[in-house]
Write a protein that binds this DNA or RNA. Structure first.
Length: 840
DNA sequence: AGCACGCCGACT
DNA sequence: GTCGGCGTGCTC
């Protein structure tokens, strides 16, 4: 028996202690490895939950009763023990329970819990029937046939006031039984059976020539005479498949597929020693049809050389260091990542590459696959559960050395990451906005520190915060200011939407953009049209009373998606048929679409360019990864003339034949209640601008905006990142915002408006009292209703804390967590958002 | 997060 | 009187 410390997958702030019997351990006692990192099923209250073994502790007297681990769920640890300090740090930094941090880090569907199931005791069928008389409820019939009800049904019956006492009585009488069942992991390893000819037979056949089949004279000299016809056929099929694939081993699936009789015959053949059977684990991979990779360039640009000359010694030093690589779009950052990865692998260490969203993984993945082949795995939420499980295990076992993925890939179980690349480090896609609100970029830096790794943050438009760190010496700044092949940055024209166009200029495209689109199509070149808003129109107004159509569960207008004929809530997914009547005045009159989204841009583009091949790429059309890949492929093959889309088309793609980029309305983001609005607008425009002129022909960009004088738009037009940084820094000094202060936001959410409001106010009062008591230099803003007051039936309030000293904020967070029960009703959720990005 | 326990309002 | 609603607190 050993005693272990376990982080349970439940919101508990402390690890719990359990005893673990030796017999449960995967290997015999004495040979068993370190149990740290194993998943275990442990009793918690009245149920069983998954826990993660953190440490082995001494068996000494404690004030509570130590319960026993029910089951060990793994044969070997699911993550390397050297990741634990990292998990611990993430847990305390983001004020999120350790067990749930680990659960979030591991592939989904691997945290089983016990559930009670109602089972019928054998031989008591009569008593069960007798209990209900003539008309038994349906679940009784089901129980009589299937003997045990599924967990979900059992839960429902035990939760209902009518059925619970009946079941309890029957349990009392010994007719029914409550069983604790644990559902198996959603995914498991896949084992394949392979067949091959026995070595003796193979040698004999080679000697006599395998060109002919088993019925041939040459074969009869090597084969025993008493073979059945089916056995001969099986051998024929096996040799044919071996010849066709050129491989010595043939999967059972293929053999049985070619000749059904092989199912039985192989058993006899194995017994006779003529063929051999093996099992091996197969790894399911998500790699689809790859995009064409660019070949490894013989020579690097001077910029690439100079940057690598700084990175490579740092890699060789095997110590922590973070570089911020500021390279303009098209300067060849990916090649820098690839070379740094080569160096890292040569040092025998692993590489982690993070991108802000799945869509971008596709581009980088193709290049890394072409360069590093089978050592590359992919980890992101677009994979099936089985694929993710297998990719995880390839990394865990050390067979994979390079992991590419979106933010969750940062938890990949690589034993020795020597290089962590964060591409497009400024992107808000690295921030996870659910219960565990972490920033993948910041955790990447932390993980690098934990593993003595080099962290490489890359961007054409670094976040103001990262650039500030580069200036302060926390990071090392690397610059690349030349585009590959001396291509110039495109010429950018700004069109002022606030001035009325000359007569008859209706619609979304002003004269300059219309003409440019027509010219570009005539020249046989591709165009991009960016509008960072999905759907046809963001609001639908009643013609009679002017009221907007709102979501039933959220305090927001529904967006008209004409392609689906529906009104959709972009916050909770609720949707309605587009033929609605006004719920405000009951008028059945027409509803007027106001504003515009990508669907409308697409429609107008079709009207303007009837002969053009036009496609749209936004999260509506890219929901299916296959469709997305097909679109990208079509773009590369020049089967699309105009691609309309949201920010999804702006990032990272290398479209060599795009020579025109139109930004339909650049200032949408500037009206957001967000201190980063200008920074984000600059980044988006710069990113999409970078899509133009990446091939031989120079590019051109047209930006339509209501605010042509806004500095973010003007500076994006002039490609002046440093100046934007300087202005942002000035603006954020007073009132202070990051990087000069750190922020923590508290979000209070719940279905009862009053409880949420009171909770927020009590929380704010508590924070102000604590601030006084601790004499902390903390500024407290709010509480106030969130800009989106109600989402998904939940009312939302928030409170923002600012401080120059992060430790003081952490202290306050700890106090709040400790006093949570007195402050916020249990029915409300309290989310702690450290370094918030999204102020909505 | 669940799941138990315990305290108050509407009914037999 | 009891039933049953949900607020409150604990889980090694």
């Amino acid at each position: 028996m050993i005693r272990v410390e376990v982080a349970v997958a439940a919101p508990l702030d402390q690890p719990l202690t359990y005893d673990l019997e030796d017999a449960l351990l995967p290997a015999p006692p004495g040979t068993a490895g370190d149990p740290v990192g194993l998943r275990v099923l442990v009793p918690l209250g009245g149920r069983g939950v998954t826990g993660y073994v953190l440490a082995v502790v001494a068996m000494e007297d404690v004030a509570y009763t130590v319960r026993r681990v029910t089951k060990v769920l793994d044969r070997s640890p699911l993550f390397p023990a050297n990741m634990l300090p990292f998990f611990r740090w993430a847990s305390s930094y983001y004020h999120y329970p350790l067990g749930l941090v680990i659960k979030a880090a591991l592939p989904a569907g691997m945290a089983p819990r016990s559930a009670r199931a109602i089972a019928l005791v054998p031989g008591r069928d009569q008593e069960l029937r007798g209990f209900f008389g003539a008309e038994p409820p349906p679940w009784v019939g089901e129980l009589l046939t299937s003997r045990r009800l599924p967990a979900a049904a059992s839960r429902k019956l035990l939760g209902a006031k009518a059925t619970r006492p009946q079941i309890e009585a029957l349990v009392e009488q010994g007719v029914l039984q409550l069983q604790d069942i644990v559902e198996a992991d959603a995914v498991r390893e896949k084992i394949e059976t392979l067949f091959t000819l026995a070595p003796g037979l193979r040698a004999g056949l080679e000697h006599h020539g395998t060109e002919t089949g088993p019925d041939d004279a040459g074969w009869s000299q090597v084969l025993p005479g008493d073979l059945k016809r089916s056995e001969r056929q099986t051998l024929a099929a096996l040799t044919a498949l071996m010849a066709a694939s050129g491989a010595a081993k043939v999967p059972a699936r293929e053999l049985f597929g070619r000749y059904g009789g092989a199912r039985k015959a192989t058993i006899a053949l194995v017994a006779k020693g003529l063929i051999e059977q093996q099992t091996c684990r197969v790894y399911r991979t998500p790699f689809g049809e790859p995009l064409p990779p660019t070949p490894r360039p013989e020579a690097l640009t001077p910029g690439q050389q100079q940057v690598l000359a700084q990175i490579e010694p740092a890699l060789a030093a095997r110590s922590y260091r973070t570089f911020l690589l500021h390279g303009i779009t098209g300067c060849g950052k990916t090649e820098v990542y690839l070379r740094a990865a080569e160096t890292t692998l040569a040092l025998g260490r692993d590489v982690l590459v993070l991108v802000p969203e799945i869509a971008l993984a596709t581009q980088i993945e193709a290049q890394f696959l072409a360069r590093f082949g089978e050592t590359v795995v992919l980890l992101h939420s677009g994979l099936t559960g089985a694929e993710r499980f297998d990719q995880w295990h390839l990394a865990l076992s050390g067979r994979a050395k390079v992991v590419i993925g979106a933010r969750s890939a940062l938890f990949a179980p690589l034993a020795d990451p020597g290089l962590i690349v964060v591409d497009e480090e400024h992107d808000s896609g690295f921030k996870q906005d659910d219960a565990f609100r972490y920033n993948g970029r910041d955790l990447a830096v932390l993980r690098g520190r934990c593993h003595d790794a080099v962290v490489l943050l890359g961007s054409a438009t670094p976040s103001v915060t990262s650039y500030y760190h580069a200036g302060s010496g926390k990071y090392t700044l690397l610059q690349m200011k030349e585009r590959v092949g001396d291509r110039s940055l495109p010429a950018v024209t700004v069109v002022d939407l606030s001035r009325k166009g000359r007569g008859g200029e209706k619609g979304l495209f002003r004269r300059e953009l219309r003409q440019a689109l027509l010219d570009n199509l005539a020249a046989g070149q591709q165009s991009l049209l960016l509008l960072n808003r999905r759907g046809f129109a963001p609001v639908l107004l009643c013609q009679d009373c002017g009221a907007p159509v709102e979501c039933l569960h959220c305090h927001v207008a529904l967006t008209l998606h004409r392609a689906q004929g529906r009104l959709v809530c972009h916050y909770c997914g609720y949707s309605l048929d587009q033929r609605v009547i006004c719920s405000h005045c009951r008028s059945t009159g027409a509803m007027v679409p106001v504003g515009f989204g990508t669907e409308r841009v697409e429609e107008e583009a079709r009207l303007l360019l009837p002969a053009a091949r036009i496609a749209r790429l936004d999260s509506d059309t890219a929901a299916d990864r296959k469709v997305f890949l097909k679109l990208l492929r079509a773009m590369h093959d020049r089967e699309i003339d105009v691609l309309v889309g949201t920010q999804m088309i702006a990032k990272g793609h290398h479209f060599p034949h795009v020579t025109l980029v139109g930004v339909v309305w650049a200032d949408g983001g500037l009206n957001m209640p967000d201190f980063r609005a200008a920074e984000k607008t600059f980044q988006l425009i710069t990113q999409v601008t970078g899509r133009a002129g990446r091939g031989e022909s120079p590019g051109r960009v047209i930006i339509q905006t209501m605010r042509p004088d806004h500095y973010s738009i003007r500076l994006a037009q002039q490609h002046q990142y440093e100046e934007l940084y300087r202005q942002e820094l000035e603006l954020r000094r007073n009132p202070a915002f990051p990087p000069f202060v750190r922020l923590v936001a508290f979000h209070i959410q719940g279905e009862k408006e009053e409880e949420v409001r009171q909770g927020a106010q009590r929380l704010a009062g508590f924070c102000r009292d604590e601030k006084k008591r601790l004499q902390a230099g903390v500024e407290i803003l709010g509480p106030a209703p969130a800009p989106l007051e109600r989402i998904n039936r939940n009312y939302r309030w928030q409170l923002l804390l600012k401080a120059a000293d992060l430790d003081q904020l952490h202290m306050l967070c700890r106090q709040v967590r400790e006093h949570r029960p007195e402050l916020v009703a249990a029915s409300c959720r309290l989310l702690i958002d450290v370094d918030p990005e999204n102020m909505m």
